[in-house]
Amino acid sequence: MGTMGEHGDVASGLTLSPLQEKALEAVLIQLAAKSSAGLVLLATRTGHYISMRGTQKHVDGAALASLVAADLAASTQITALVDASEVHTMILREGERTTLLIAEAGPALVLLVVASRDVPLGWIRMLVQGAAQRMAEITRPAPGRPMPALAAVMPGGEFADLVGQAIDDLWNE
């Protein structure tokens, strides 16, 4: 942490420009439609929720994003312990009614797809791989990709006090 990349990304996290967000949404919508998924969720590798699509409603996206990122992180560590030379980019879970896929989408993102078992697994896997590649490309820092100045978005020096006040306001005794 502590440095800002030349394209607006903070080293510790992910910064999405409006253009990037729009492009990611388009990939997500296409993936949900083609896979007939009940749920497609996009999060950062550190568990921040980005977006969610699909027919399944009333899902707590923030909580789900934290679990999906944790699942991928744990699996990555399992791989490292078992065979450090191997790289697994996808986790598959098969249930009686649904298939669940968690996939890396570049170094910053993770993708969850929950689809019916009626949809062929090979088809879903192919769609997820394609979507993950496109998402990785969209979020890859590249020269010439403009990012609004962060200072223009973030309020001034009183912001910390306002955040503290907001916490006090949320608190019900």
């Binding site: 942490m1 502590g2 440095t3 800002m4 903070v10 100045a149 962060l150 200072a151 973030m154 020096g157 912001f159 910390a160 006090d161 955040v163 503290g164 916490i167 006090d168 608190w171």
Partner: peptide, 24 residues
């Protein structure tokens, strides 16, 4: 509990502002 949460959030935001200023 609230006091600790408030304090850490204020520090996180201050650091964030500092990073932004440094980058600008």
């Amino acid at each position: 509990v609230r006091e600790s949460l408030r304090a850490v959030m204020e520090r996180v935001v201050v650091r964030l502002r500092r990073e932004i200023s440094a980058s600008a």
